[in-house]
Design a protein around this nucleic acid. Sequence first.
DNA 1: AGCCAGGAAGTCC
DNA 2: GGACTTCATGGC
Length: 272
Amino acid sequence: MEQIIEHLNLQQIADSGQCFTWECLAENNYSICAYGRYLETKQQGNKFIFSCGKQEFDTFWSGYFDLDTDYGAIKRTIDTQDAYLNAAIQFGGGIRILRQELWEVMVGFLISQNNHIPRIRSSMQALRTQYGQRREKGNAAGVYYSFPHPDELSDATAADFSALGLGYRAKYLETLVSRMRRGGLEELKQTLEALDDAAVIQQLCTLYGIGKKVAECIALFGMHRTNRFPIDTHIRRILERHYAAGFPYTRYDGVLGIIQQYLFYYHLKGEK
DNA sequence: AGCCAGGAAGTCC
DNA sequence: GGACTTCATGGC
């Protein structure tokens, strides 16, 4: 099916580092596996072609791409005097915060610490093909691998994960899997849903290998807590260099996570 | 061009 | 404050 969508750019999202499992098939053409479903999509300007039917798009993928959130309205609240932020949005205004699966995000950002995006991606891909379920694409030729549930990872050891390039993070994942298997993940999800942002972060930080920064990312990308503002090395530099007098947190209260993504992506890819 | 060093969406002890 | 895995990246 086809659809016109504003404030969405596949390449920007794919390179923004919020998800590590999209696969680039060609320019502006990606395959996406999420919640066990498979989708291929192509973009030409604001026109998109999706490999699924209208009903599946409306009931599932539309939510995944966060199309119910009005990014145009958010952009209109931006301080016109803030040259850096405006440049960032000019550069990466097609970024949205996807509604990804909690577990996949937890693993992705557990691996992300002290790491490069290309390497995170290859580790995530290896986890899928090693432990995920092999499935027919259905609406396209070939097969894909779903991202493995904790139960599907429960026989793997730290040494197995290390072999996939996780390095010293392998033991973190082994411990996390043992906590999240056999209903642990579903229990955690229920617990977290009931908590406010600060308590979510606090709760996540009790897990071995998850510190403040990773917890913030999990809340933002895995639970759509769009007011979380993860401060990593890139953001820290931006704050020092461009917001030495203080960042306007209160002005963007409620959408700080979205603002963070614009800034992060611009620093990562745009600003030279 | 090819090599080398500093750094990478940090956290643990 | 130091150690931790490995390697894509940029500088020379």
